[in-house]
Amino acid sequence: MTSILGPWGLLALAGILEVIWALALKASDGFSRPLPTVVTIVGAAASFFLLAQALKDLPAGTAYAVWTGIGAMGVAILGVIWFGEAINAFKIAGILLIVAGITALKLA
Protein backbone atom coordinates (compact mmCIF):
# COMPACT_ATOMS: atom_id res chain seq x y z
CA MET A 1 0.00 0.00 0.00
CA THR A 2 1.55 3.25 -1.09
CA SER A 3 0.49 6.17 1.03
CA ILE A 4 1.20 9.86 1.01
CA LEU A 5 1.55 9.52 4.79
CA GLY A 6 4.54 7.19 4.52
CA PRO A 7 5.19 4.42 7.03
CA TRP A 8 5.63 6.76 10.01
CA GLY A 9 2.40 8.59 9.19
CA LEU A 10 0.54 5.29 8.89
CA LEU A 11 2.01 4.23 12.23
CA ALA A 12 0.96 7.49 13.88
CA LEU A 13 -2.57 7.10 12.53
CA ALA A 14 -2.64 3.48 13.71
CA GLY A 15 -1.61 4.69 17.17
CA ILE A 16 -4.36 7.32 17.22
CA LEU A 17 -6.90 4.67 16.24
CA GLU A 18 -5.57 2.49 19.06
CA VAL A 19 -6.39 5.29 21.50
CA ILE A 20 -9.88 5.61 20.00
CA TRP A 21 -10.69 1.91 20.19
CA ALA A 22 -9.27 1.52 23.69
CA LEU A 23 -11.34 4.43 25.00
CA ALA A 24 -14.40 3.09 23.19
CA LEU A 25 -13.74 -0.28 24.84
CA LYS A 26 -13.92 1.41 28.24
CA ALA A 27 -17.08 3.26 27.20
CA SER A 28 -18.67 0.03 25.90
CA ASP A 29 -19.18 -1.15 29.48
CA GLY A 30 -18.19 -4.72 28.73
CA PHE A 31 -19.64 -4.61 25.20
CA SER A 32 -23.10 -3.83 26.59
CA ARG A 33 -23.41 -0.49 24.75
CA PRO A 34 -23.78 -0.89 20.96
CA LEU A 35 -22.17 2.31 19.60
CA PRO A 36 -18.94 2.13 21.65
CA THR A 37 -18.78 -1.59 20.87
CA VAL A 38 -18.91 -0.91 17.12
CA VAL A 39 -16.30 1.87 17.45
CA THR A 40 -14.06 -0.58 19.35
CA ILE A 41 -14.31 -3.29 16.70
CA VAL A 42 -13.95 -1.00 13.68
CA GLY A 43 -11.22 1.08 15.32
CA ALA A 44 -9.20 -1.98 16.32
CA ALA A 45 -9.46 -3.48 12.84
CA ALA A 46 -8.39 -0.22 11.20
CA SER A 47 -5.55 0.25 13.69
CA PHE A 48 -4.21 -3.26 13.05
CA PHE A 49 -4.53 -2.78 9.30
CA LEU A 50 -2.54 0.47 9.35
CA LEU A 51 0.06 -1.08 11.67
CA ALA A 52 0.43 -3.97 9.22
CA GLN A 53 0.95 -1.52 6.35
CA ALA A 54 3.58 0.42 8.32
CA LEU A 55 5.37 -2.85 9.15
CA LYS A 56 6.10 -3.33 5.46
CA ASP A 57 8.76 -0.62 5.78
CA LEU A 58 9.57 -0.28 9.49
CA PRO A 59 11.34 -2.66 11.87
CA ALA A 60 8.78 -4.71 13.80
CA GLY A 61 10.14 -3.97 17.26
CA THR A 62 10.32 -0.25 16.68
CA ALA A 63 6.90 -0.01 15.03
CA TYR A 64 5.18 -2.10 17.70
CA ALA A 65 6.80 -0.16 20.55
CA VAL A 66 5.81 3.18 19.00
CA TRP A 67 2.26 1.97 18.28
CA THR A 68 1.71 0.72 21.82
CA GLY A 69 3.44 3.79 23.23
CA ILE A 70 1.10 6.14 21.40
CA GLY A 71 -1.83 4.07 22.61
CA ALA A 72 -0.69 3.92 26.23
CA MET A 73 0.14 7.61 26.37
CA GLY A 74 -3.10 8.69 24.69
CA VAL A 75 -5.31 6.46 26.79
CA ALA A 76 -3.57 7.55 30.01
CA ILE A 77 -4.02 11.24 29.21
CA LEU A 78 -7.57 11.00 27.86
CA GLY A 79 -8.59 8.60 30.64
CA VAL A 80 -7.81 11.37 33.11
CA ILE A 81 -9.68 13.97 31.05
CA TRP A 82 -12.75 11.98 29.97
CA PHE A 83 -13.16 9.35 32.67
CA GLY A 84 -11.80 11.25 35.66
CA GLU A 85 -9.06 8.69 36.28
CA ALA A 86 -6.47 9.57 38.92
CA ILE A 87 -3.37 11.56 37.99
CA ASN A 88 -0.21 11.82 40.03
CA ALA A 89 3.50 12.48 39.62
CA PHE A 90 4.23 8.83 38.80
CA LYS A 91 1.67 8.76 36.00
CA ILE A 92 3.05 12.01 34.57
CA ALA A 93 6.60 10.65 34.78
CA GLY A 94 5.49 7.46 33.05
CA ILE A 95 3.89 9.40 30.22
CA LEU A 96 7.06 11.48 29.80
CA LEU A 97 9.15 8.30 29.72
CA ILE A 98 6.91 6.90 26.99
CA VAL A 99 7.39 10.10 24.97
CA ALA A 100 11.15 9.82 25.47
CA GLY A 101 11.09 6.17 24.38
CA ILE A 102 9.06 6.87 21.26
CA THR A 103 11.40 9.73 20.37
CA ALA A 104 14.46 7.55 20.87
CA LEU A 105 13.04 4.78 18.71
CA LYS A 106 12.11 7.23 15.96
CA LEU A 107 15.62 8.68 15.96
CA ALA A 108 17.39 5.32 16.14
Rank of each mutant, 00 (worst) to 15 (best):
L58W: 15
K91Q: 11
L25M: 14
V99A: 07
G30T: 01
G69A: 14
I87M: 14
G69R: 06
V80F: 15
G79I: 10
Y64C: 05
F90A: 12
G30V: 01
G74D: 04
A89W: 14
S32T: 15
E85Y: 14
G15V: 08
T40K: 08
A14S: 08
W82G: 04
L50R: 00
A24H: 11
A104Q: 11
N88Q: 06
T40D: 07
Q53D: 00
A12D: 07
G69L: 11
A100H: 04
K26R: 14
P34E: 15
F48I: 07
V38I: 13
F90Q: 14
Y64N: 06
E85C: 10
I98G: 06
L58I: 10
I20D: 02
G43P: 05
F49T: 04
G15I: 01
W82P: 02
G71D: 01
G94D: 06
V99G: 05
G94I: 07
A27N: 10
G101A: 05
V42L: 08
M73C: 12
A52D: 08
V80P: 04
V99D: 04
V19M: 01
I81P: 02
A89G: 03
L78K: 09
A89H: 12
G79M: 13
L58E: 12
P36I: 12
L78R: 08
P34L: 15
A100R: 01
L78P: 05
L35G: 15
I95Y: 09
T68N: 09
T62P: 14
A45G: 06
A100Y: 02
F31M: 07
G94A: 10
I70P: 05
A46E: 00
D57N: 04
I98H: 05
G74Q: 05
A100N: 02
R33T: 12
S47Y: 00
S28C: 10
F49A: 04
G43D: 01
L17Q: 02
A60K: 12
I70M: 07
V19P: 02
L96Q: 06
K91D: 09
V66W: 04
L13P: 02
M73G: 11
L58G: 07
A65F: 03
A12W: 13
A46D: 00
G15H: 06
A89N: 14
I95D: 08
I16H: 02
A44V: 07
G71F: 01
G69Y: 12
G30K: 06
G74I: 06
W21P: 02
T40H: 06
L10S: 03
A63P: 05
A60Y: 11
I87K: 11
A93M: 08
K26N: 12
A63N: 11
I87T: 12
D29T: 13
